[in-house]
């Protein structure tokens, strides 16, 4: 199949594909591989709904215009378990854990992002009163 594909390409095609591949690799080099983050931030319309450490397992139901989007933090990753949005794109984004990574559920107007450096380890308390 690769050979058939190769034969179907003109010289210019091969040149274009090589150039594009180079561009993709360059974009990986520039933008890829951020270190793991420490906290999960959940925002709606630029407002912080809450933030939680990435190291603690929890599930949070986030209400939006369409209904509840269920966020899970487990094994140091944040992901969407279920969402009422039509295409489930946010669920398909899988787990995020690197600094700057984000899951956006545009229909339900939620942005979940990862911030901060390495995890500080578990705190000396179970709950924080503030």
């Amino acid at each position: 199949m690769i050979a058939a594909l190769w034969r179907r390409m003109t010289v210019l095609d091969r040149f274009i594909v090589a150039l594009l591949l180079l561009g993709v690799l360059a974009s990986f080099a520039v933008l890829g591989r951020q270190p793991a983050g420490a906290r999960v931030l959940v925002e709606r319309d630029g407002r912080l709904l809450f933030s939680a450490p990435l190291g603690e397992a929890r599930r949070v139901a986030l209400p939006g215009p369409l209904g509840d989007t269920l966020l899970e933090i487990a094994d140091g990753r944040a992901r969407i378990l279920s969402s009422p949005c039509p295409h489930k794109v946010c669920m398909g984004m899988g787990g995020v854990f690197r600094r700057g990574e984000l899951i956006a559920c545009i229909p339900n107007r939620l942005i979940i992002s990862i911030e901060g450096g390495a995890d500080q380890g578990s705190p000396a308390y179970d709950l924080l009163s503030h």
Binding site: L49, A57, R58, V60, A61, G92
Partner: peptide, 25 residues
């Protein structure tokens, strides 16, 4: 592909919901 990444276990329940204008856990 859509079914990849399923499963998980929980020893402790920790559930949250936005209520009363804040995160209730």
């Amino acid at each position: 592909l859509a079914l990849v990444k399923r499963g998980g276990r929980e020893a402790e329940l920790r559930e949250g919901r936005i209520l009363l204008g804040t995160l209730v856990e």
